[in-house]
Amino acid sequence: MLERLLDSKILIVIRGLNLREATDLCEILLENDLRFVEVSFSEEDADEVLKTLKKHFDGELFLGAGTIFDEKNYRKALAAGADYVLSPGLSQKMAELSKKDRIPYIPGVFTPTDVQNALELGYDVLKLYPADMNLLRSYRGPFPKVKFIPFGGVTDENVTLYLSSGAAAVGIGSYIANKKLLRERNFKELDDRIKKIKSLIGGLSGSCR
Rank of each mutant, 00 (worst) to 15 (best):
V159Y: 00
K188S: 08
D83A: 13
P130C: 10
L126N: 09
D70H: 05
P150F: 02
I106E: 00
G141A: 11
K179H: 13
A118P: 06
G171D: 03
I149M: 15
D24L: 05
P150A: 01
T155N: 13
R20A: 10
A77T: 13
Y139I: 02
E3F: 15
F41Y: 12
K179S: 15
F151L: 15
E60K: 15
S42V: 13
A80K: 03
L119S: 08
V146M: 08
G81S: 07
L90Y: 10
T111H: 01
Y105H: 08
G202E: 12
K179D: 11
D33G: 08
F36I: 07
K54R: 12
V154P: 13
S91C: 06
T155P: 07
Y175L: 07
L17P: 06
L63N: 04
S98M: 10
P88H: 07
K188G: 03
L53N: 11
T155M: 02
S98F: 09
A131G: 15
A77N: 14
T52C: 03
L86F: 15
N186K: 14
L63S: 09
K72P: 00
I172L: 14
A46K: 13
L181T: 01
S199L: 09
S40R: 09
R4V: 12
V125T: 10
T113E: 03
I201H: 05
L61C: 09
K127I: 05
F62Y: 15
E31Q: 12
K127E: 10
V146W: 03
K54V: 07
G59Q: 11
G202V: 14
